[in-house]
Amino acid sequence: MKSSALGSILLGSVDPVRLHAWYLAALAPEHFGDGFIDFGGVRVLFENRTDVAPATAEPGRVIFNFHVADARAAAAHLDGLGATWLVEVERRDAGLFGTLVDPDGNYIQIIELSEEYLAAAGR
């Protein structure tokens, strides 16, 4: 079997319009007006669902990791939007990491990988 590629993610919400607007404001992704937001080749669609609660029950089950060039600048931008931080940006072995909560209670991380980590990983 050929390898598959992750092309899109559907994120169900009772208020997909709010969630869509938040991700646009928070992370400035590409948006083409078709409902999907493109995060570097992985497209996310926010869909109205009646089979989900207003807030996720297990927010740590799936965490979106957003790689950024400047984690502290991204955090300052998110602070300006009133972000709720689970873990503020901190240095770890691989670089800078911060975990915050989106309006539906999902966890997302902003990650700035260090030059040392990237070099060791061959990137």
Rank of each mutant, 00 (worst) to 15 (best):
R43C: 08
V87H: 10
A5S: 13
E112H: 01
G105W: 02
G80V: 02
L19D: 02
L100H: 01
L45G: 10
F32V: 13
G60S: 10
G7N: 13
R92P: 08
L86P: 02
R18L: 11
R61H: 14
A69P: 08
A119T: 15
D15F: 03
I110C: 02
L100E: 00
I9C: 04
L24M: 12
R49Q: 07
A28G: 07
I108M: 06
E47V: 15
F46S: 01
V101W: 05
T50F: 11
R61G: 06
V44A: 04
L86T: 09
G122E: 05
R18M: 11
F36P: 06
H20Y: 05
A73T: 11
A21M: 06
H77N: 06
Y107M: 11
N106I: 05
F66M: 08
E47L: 15
D38C: 07
T56L: 10
L113D: 09
L78Y: 00
I110T: 03
S13F: 00
V42S: 01
E30H: 12
D93S: 13
R61Q: 12
P54Y: 02
A121R: 14
A120R: 15
S114P: 08
F39I: 15
A73N: 10
R123V: 15
V68S: 00
L24S: 06
R91K: 14
I9R: 00
E116V: 15
I63Q: 05
T50D: 10
L113C: 11
V68R: 01
A57R: 14
L78K: 00
V42C: 09
R61K: 14
A119R: 15
I63S: 04
G122V: 11
L96W: 02
R72F: 14
Q109Y: 04
A73S: 12
V14I: 12
A119Q: 14
R92W: 07
H31L: 08
R92D: 10
P16D: 02
D15V: 07
V14A: 05
D104L: 09
T56Y: 06
H67F: 14
V62I: 12
I37Q: 04
A28F: 01
A74K: 02
V89C: 03
S4K: 14
I37F: 00
L78H: 00
G80K: 00
A55D: 09
A83Q: 01
A26Q: 02
S13Y: 00
V101C: 05
R123M: 14
I108C: 10
V44R: 04
V101T: 10
R49L: 09
H77R: 13
E88C: 13
G7Q: 12
A69S: 15
I9G: 03
R49H: 09
A120D: 07
A53I: 06
A57T: 12
V14E: 02
A120I: 08
A76I: 06
D70T: 11
F66S: 05
P16M: 04
F97M: 13
G122N: 05
P16N: 06
R61F: 10
V62P: 01
T50H: 09
A76Y: 01
H20D: 05
V101Q: 03
E112W: 07
D70I: 07
E30K: 12
A121M: 15
I9N: 04
M1P: 10
V44F: 07
A57P: 03
T99A: 08
L118C: 15
E90C: 11
F36M: 11
V17L: 11
A53E: 13
Y23N: 03
V101F: 03
A71R: 03
G40K: 09
